[in-house]
Simulated assay, not measured.
Amino acid sequence: MTRSDYGTGLMAFWSDIDDDYLMRYQQWHNCEHVPERVSTPGFRRGRRYRCVTGAPHFLMMYETENPGTLASDAYMAKLNVPTPWTKEALTHFRNPNRGIYSIAHQEGEEGPFCATWITALRFTLSGEAGADAVRDWLGAIAAEAGIGRVQLWRADVATSGLATAERKIYGGSAAGDHLLLLIESMLPHAEQGDALHAGDRAAPPLAARKGEVKGQYWLELYHHSQAIYGGMQ
């Protein structure tokens, strides 16, 4: 895809899954849930990544045309009338953390394939950072060998906190105000860590991060809407 094809909305969901339900969870997520979600108007694609370190088990993400898609009537209808299999699966989520985001800044380009490795960093900043510092920070990361898209997302606190039937099942608190950095790569996670450190050296004002939560993941599932590729198979 070109830069103009990228969506500006994101739903990201981190969760552990009960060990004895893991296979059943993957069947549900692969065969029902992600196709159902990606069929929603405005959804571009869904991905699931498995954590390298094992906890939380998974990072599930959906990119959307814009942040409003994630509060649309079509999406809310699915969240409030979950399928029987969804009701079952959500009871096996542990330590859930779900957030809705809008794009703040991005550098680099996606490669010819969906990123097979990703680093996710959630944090807040101690003080305001200027647009130039943000651009320099992400640009330094994107310039590292093997790195593709580098995106900085800002949490939408109001939309993240909407009460739904699904949230009542899996529980968990709504995401607070924070930033989410996603570093996409075709290389293993070690190189991604080096890229993040290079970014810190390039933009010292952004090194003062608070409440940092970092995870490194490999791609396990990818579904896209045919609409983003003009209906081509």
Rank of each mutant, 00 (worst) to 15 (best):
T2E: 08
D5L: 09
G7T: 07
D18R: 10
D19H: 07
M23R: 14
M23S: 15
W28E: 12
N30T: 15
C31S: 08
H33T: 09
V34F: 04
V34T: 06
V34G: 02
V38K: 10
P41Y: 03
G42K: 00
G46N: 00
R48N: 02
R50M: 06
V52M: 03
M61T: 14
N66S: 15
N66Q: 10
L70D: 10
S72W: 14
P82R: 04
A89N: 13
L90W: 11
G99W: 02
I103K: 03
F113K: 01
A115F: 12
T119L: 10
R122V: 11
R122T: 11
G130F: 00
A131N: 09
R135G: 10
W137P: 01
W137H: 09
L138M: 08
G139E: 08
G139R: 05
E144C: 12
G148I: 02
R149L: 06
L152P: 03
A155P: 05
T159Q: 11
K168I: 00
A174S: 14
G176E: 12
D177R: 10
I183F: 00
D194T: 09
R201V: 07
A202G: 02
A202F: 03
A203C: 09
P204R: 06
L206T: 00
G211D: 07
G211V: 03
K214T: 11
Q216M: 03
H224G: 07
S225W: 11
I228A: 14
G231F: 12
M232N: 15
